[in-house]
């Protein structure tokens, strides 16, 4: 055990932080699974598990674009819809021939590839753009996709796609979350990740030191869109109907809200805020008519507090790491004092 701790503290700071994030996720998964297994989870809580996984994947992947590359993309729901439709159409076609254990991972993979392909497709023309312009183009792209889906026959048109097998479970969702975290964290920590962040800090300087900006932008877009597609596949297989209207720009904005609330470039924050924003409107059901109003007020309050300096100071003072450190320090001081008195 001691050697594990020694090894752990010997790791890079970012690697340590990543391990903590994964461990927290595993603990949460274990806790929830135990609750469900012992019958302590309400039906309402169980119905939220898969949506939570979906939102975590969406938030973490969008954070890659917004937080690490520093570009504002509002088309994440569009990539999600491509993945969702591709995966669901695949599942409907192979419902009889393939068992779930083969079909669903394949469906998620297909959803991811379809999303990634569109990410690449959109990425190429928008490479020239940045900032507000990129945001507008990606927003338009999402709306174009939605219109196309509504007008196509095989997607079910306006009335939606129906009849997909209900394959999404919390376990599958959790596996997808872990893979997403693993890939995104490792990408961020790698040489590529440092290049991506260099582009965010100063694109001209980055290209001056030989970083291929276009290549990295495309890479980020594709990876983010891939995971959006996986999230879409999870979403599509969770309900018996899927309409294009779900994937409008409001959905993209909702994901953006989760990213901003969790902190740009902060993966653990993204996870926490995704859970919070998914659960919050459902926890407020008791308020009936005021639900959406209070939800909005709470969102505003969280955003204000999250950026307020005083609150950040308070949070810093109350951070568990610091509290423990201080407590240990105090103990050490007292010990030292005692020692000093003994010999003094």
């Amino acid at each position: 055990m001691k050697s594990f701790f020694n090894k752990f503290s010997g790791l890079k700071k970012s690697a340590r932080s990543n391990m903590i994030t994964l461990a927290l996720c595993l603990a949460a998964f274990g806790f929830v699974t135990a609750m469900v297994a012992t019958g302590n989870a309400s039906r309402h809580m169980k119905s939220l598990l898969v949506p939570i996984c979906i939102n975590i994947i969406l938030t973490v992947s969008l954070n890659l674009v917004i937080g690490f590359l520093g570009e504002l993309s509002l088309g994440h729901a569009g990539f999600m819809s491509v993945g969702a439709y591709a995966a669901c159409l695949f599942s409907i076609a192979f419902e009889e021939t393939l068992p779930v254990m083969v079909r669903f991972p394949l469906a998620m993979l297909i959803g991811g590839i379809a999303g990634g392909l569109f990410g690449l497709l959109v990425g190429i023309p928008v490479l020239r753009l940045k900032g507000d312009y990129l945001a507008i183009v990606t927003l338009a792209f999402g709306e174009i996709l939605r219109s196309i889906i509504i007008n196509l026959e095989f997607t079910g048109g306006a009335s939606g796609l129906k009849g997909m097998p209900q394959d999404s479970t919390f376990n599958w969702g959790f596996i997808a979350v872990v893979i997403t975290l693993f890939v995104v964290m490792n990408l961020v920590d790698s040489r590529h990740g440092r290049a991506i962040m260099a582009i965010r800090e100063n694109a001209i300087a980055a290209s001056a030191v030989g970083i291929n900006i276009n290549r990295y932008k495309l890479m980020v877009f594709t990876v983010a869109a891939f995971f959006a597609g996986v999230a879409g596949a999870l979403y599509g297989h969770n309900y018996s109907i899927m309409t294009a209207g779900t994937f409008d720009y409001n959905k993209s904005i909702e994901i953006l809200v989760m990213v901003v609330l969790g902190g740009m470039g902060n993966i653990r924050g993204s996870i926490i805020s995704a859970v919070l924003i998914t659960v919050l409107p459902e926890m407020l059901r008791g308020l009936a008519d005021y639900r959406m109003l209070i939800y909005a007020v709470v969102l505003i309050a969280m955003m204000l507090l999250g950026t307020s300096e005083k609150f950040m100071m308070l949070r810093y003072r109350l951070a568990p790491k610091r509290l423990i450190k201080r407590a240990l320090q105090e103990r050490q001081n007292r010990k030292d004092e005692k020692e000093a008195r003994k010999y003094g």
Binding site: S42, H44, Y235, N238, T246, R285, A288
Partner: peptide, 18 residues
């Protein structure tokens, strides 16, 4: 309230079942 959204409708249904 389900905002005409399948996801929220299922969650509302689960609340009612509880």
């Amino acid at each position: 309230d389900d905002q005409a959204d399948p996801q929220q409708a299922v969650q509302a249904y689960a609340t009612l079942m509880d």
